[in-house]
Structure formats: structure tokens, C-alpha cells
Computed example of a mutant assay.
Amino acid sequence: MNCNTCSSHACVRQVPVFRSLSDEELVIIESITESHDYKKGSQVCREGEPSEALFVVKSGLIKLTKNSKEGKQHIVRFLFPGDYFGQFALLHNKNNDVTAEIIESGVVCRMHRKDFIPLLEQNAGLAFSFLMSVSEQLHLAEESAGAMHMFEVEKRLARLLVYLYTRNLNTPAVTVQALRQSVDLPSAQKEVAAMIGTTAETLSRKLNKLEALKIIAMHKRTVNILEMEALIQIAEIRD
């Protein structure tokens, strides 16, 4: 794992929470940011270990997992370039509540607590921006948890496919007009099934159904979206 501080510039400026900062403030953030290369299968942090950094995904793909009381692993969510994690444990000076595993090799930047917290205390604009971003993540987490109980598996699957596509392109789902797009399932079907609260067998049936309707076409872990508008309608995504 090699440290590469020269890439911290691009890492910081691609994160939404820092976009409203001035160039001078961004330079300060970059000065306390370091980056590391991670290989597939390695872990950035582990559940239960002390938290001392805020992590930002510069490239690659990360899976956040959490163990239940019964010892079963639950997928919390997948992180894409521009996402960050570790903020809750960092702010409360608690242990990590998730394990971050590298699914696709990439670069992760980190800002240590001893450097980042003083910046929040000294910069009201940064503190407010960070607070709003954390609030948005909480809202999305609550919305996702509600969807697990309210929506049928087919709708949850459609939402996941639209999310994976729009998250990679940073494009609002309801504005996508292309006739054909592709997404790669970020993990094995068993893990993707767990992410939407179903079984691998049910996920396979739902994918086959969407394929039979010519909404998607499957090739191994690649999902070719043939009818994006139809998928959005199933997902019931509104502008």
C-alpha cells in the first residue's frame, strides 16, 4: 500500500461537501489529506476498531458491511468515487461501526481526526457544509431503510440499478434519455441480493423477469439497460 500525497488535490475537490469552499480553504484541506492505494480484497478500516480518520473514495469501489448480533454480515452500502465515510465515528470519537472492504482496487484519501476537527472548529463555513452533508446522508439512510420494508423486491432492484447507473455518471435519473446504458453489479449476486433485502434466488428471478420484458439484458455481472424510462417507472423515481 503506497502513500501518494500528490493525488489529494483531485480527491478533495471531487467531494460535494468541499465544493462550496474557497480556493484558500481547499488548499488547507488538501494540506492535511493523504492518499493510499488499496488492492481488491483489502480493508480500509474494520468494525470495532478505533476511528481516527475521515475517508474519501478517490477511485475504485468499496463495500461497507456490519455484523449482526448473530454474527451475520450485512451489507450497508457501496461507495463510489466522491463518497466518504467514517464521519459519524470520527465526530463522536467512537469506534468504527462498519468494515470497509475494497471491491475494486483504487485510491482512498484520509484526513486524520487530530487535523480535521480543529479545521471544523475554526471554519464556520466548512462546519456548516459538513453538517448539511452528514444530515443528507442520514436522510438517505432512513429513506433506504424505509424502502426495504415498503417496496417490493422488483422495485428495490430497479432503484438499485438506476442508482448504480446515475451514481457513476453523477446524472439525475429522471433526465436520462439514452436508449442503452450498462452497469456492472458491484458484487456477487448473493451480496447484491442482501443489499436489497432478498435472496440470491429471488434476485435472479427478478433479473430474468426484467430481461424477459426486454427492459434489461444480462451478460455475467453486466446489466445492459435497454429501456431506462421503463426501469425508472418500476422504481417509481420522481423528479
Results as ranks from 00 to 15, higher is better:
V183S: 04
K72M: 14
D83S: 12
M111N: 06
S31T: 05
C109I: 08
N96G: 02
S7D: 06
A127G: 03
K66D: 10
M195R: 04
L203D: 02
I234K: 14
F85K: 09
Q181K: 07
R13Q: 15
N67I: 14
Q181D: 07
V44E: 09
S42G: 09
S129M: 10
E236P: 07
S35T: 12
G71A: 11
L164H: 00
Q87Y: 15
G60H: 04
V56H: 05
P16L: 15
D239A: 15
F88L: 13
A235W: 07
T65S: 09
V44W: 05
G48E: 10
Y165K: 12
F78Y: 05
A200Q: 12
F128E: 11
S135H: 08
R221D: 14
M218G: 03
P50Y: 06
K69G: 10
A10N: 15
L61V: 07
K94I: 03
I196M: 03
T33H: 00
K155M: 07
V108R: 04
E30D: 03
L226I: 15
N2F: 12
P81C: 02
L120Y: 00
L61N: 00
Q73K: 14
L131W: 11
P81R: 06
M195N: 07
L213K: 10
A127V: 07
R180I: 08
A178W: 12
L231H: 02
N93V: 05
K209E: 05
L120V: 06
N168W: 06
L203T: 03
Y84I: 10
E49F: 09
T198Q: 02
A188E: 13
D239V: 13
A200K: 11
C3N: 15
V17D: 05
S51N: 14
S135T: 03
Y38D: 04
L164Q: 00
S7K: 15
